[in-house]
Each structure stands twice: as structure tokens, then as C-alpha cells.
Amino acid sequence: MSSIAAVSDIQLEKKSSLWLDAWCRLKKNKMAMVSSFLVVAFFLLAIAVPILSPFPIDEVHYDSIGMAPNTLHWFGTDILGRDMLARTFYGLRISLAVGLTATLVSFAIGVVYGAVAGFYGGKVDALMMRFVDVVYGLPYMFFVIIVMSVFGNNILILFMAIGAVSWLTMARIVRGQVLSISQKEFVEAARSCGVRNRTIIFRHLIPNALGPIIVYTTLMVPRTILVEAFLSFLGLGIQPPQASLGSLASDGASAMDLYPWLILFPGVVLAILLFALNYFGDGLRDALDPRMKK
């Protein structure tokens, strides 16, 4: 009995959890911290742009058409005299919203779907993955276009449509990971301890599949932003005078030789955003792995 008493008196090392530890490790990764700062800054700017900007997004000024960047219009103006700074950050707003919503939708569906298929295996897995294969076979742009034309040109529908088609790859990745992880002895150990299936999936399988999941998620944000840009270009996405980074870039591309700043600024903002997301994703993946030291 004395040993129990002795044991409970021990001063424990600091309180920790997977996420708390991950945060400590993330803090030490400079690139990831700079990146997350940038992402957050972009977020705030995108939200606050109507308050901060003296120019509304759609205010046409015929006296200031195609002006190069100057002290009044930092990013210049477009061929209708609209302030590019305001338009770029409005665009960022739409792009971020599309990217994140679609990614969240596909993350939620894909991870659970893939994990369930991989964990149960056998017939359940075969059936679920055949369904994925069939949907995969459909040209997905076609699917988005049908959804958009049936339900109308609504931004929310756009988010959903993109998310609903991009979970397929996520499901495949997660299923593959889960299949190999569930062969590991610690999963068997959990089962032999009577741990319930749901707990096994959420405590043992998904956390160990996080690496590829996070990498794929961070890659998906830029991809959905580009998909949105493409849809906008087809006239199915964001409608003028609304703008997204994609539509701004594609507009700018057509007048690149005369007004290079029209593509430069949205392009640079998009590039910085994508870089930051990628670095942040890598940092998050490393931080969530307790085996990574430092």
C-alpha cells in the first residue's frame, strides 16, 4: 500500500495533451508561425476591408481609369476606374470563404467516410469505395456545372458543390491510411481492451492518419480557389461586380500588357496566401507528430 501513496505524491511533468503539445512544437517552427500570422492577417483584412477601404468595390470612376499604383490607389485602378486594393481584398474574402468552406465540407465528409470504409473493411469497404469510384468517374466540373445551373448562381451552392466533389480524394487517402494503421498492433490492443469502434476510429486511427490528411487539406484550399476562379471565368461562379482573386486574375490577364498591375496584385496576394497555407500545413503536420523533436 505504501507504494501507492509514494506514487501519487510524485510531482508530474507539465500537463499536456496532443493539441497542447502540438501548439508548443508549432511555436518553435518559425516558418509555420510566420505563415499562420500571414493567414490570420489576410483573414482579418478580408473581413475588415469594407471598413478600412475608402473605396467601395463597385464604385466606377471614369476619371481614374487604368491608373498605375499611386498614393491614392495603392494597387492602381482597373479599366472601370475601380480601386484595385479594395477589389483585391474583397476578392480575397470570397476566395478564402470558398476555399475554406469547400475544404471543411470535404474534410468532414472525406475523413469520416474514408475512416469508416477502411476500418470496417470487407464488404462495407468494397461497397463504399465502389460508390466513390463511380462518382470519381463523372467529370466533376460537369457535376458542379449541373448543380450550379439547377440550383442557381448562389455563392453558398458554389461552396457546397465544390466541397461535395472534392471529398472523394480525401476519402481515398484516409481509407488507405486507415487500412494500414488498423493492421498495427496498437489498434488490436485497443480492441482487446474492449474499446468501442467509434473510439478506435477517432482516438487511434484518425490521429495517426493526420499527416497526409493535413497536407492534402492545405493543398485543397488553393485548389478550390482555382476551381472557383475557373467557374467564375465560365460565368458560373462569382458574378461581376463581385470579384474573387481568381476572377480578378483572369480579368487582369486579358489586359496584362497595358495594365500589368491588374494581374500583379491579385496574383501576388494569391501566391502569398497559397505559400503561407502550405507552410502552415507542413508545420501543423510536424507539430502533430510527437516523434518530431524540437
Binding site: 482487446s192 487511434h204 490521429p207 507528430d289
Partner: peptide, 19 residues
């Protein structure tokens, strides 16, 4: 399952690395 347990071969694979 309370009454019967298992000890595994591979001490590297039998513990969840994230716990």
C-alpha cells in the same frame, strides 16, 4: 474482454504514438 488481455510482439507498433 475485461478478463482476458494480450501482450504484443512489437513494442514499437503496439503503442499508439500519438497518445
Amino acid at each position: 474482454r475485461r478478463h482476458m488481455q494480450m501482450i504484443f510482439q512489437d513494442p514499437f507498433a503496439s503503442l499508439n504514438p500519438r497518445m
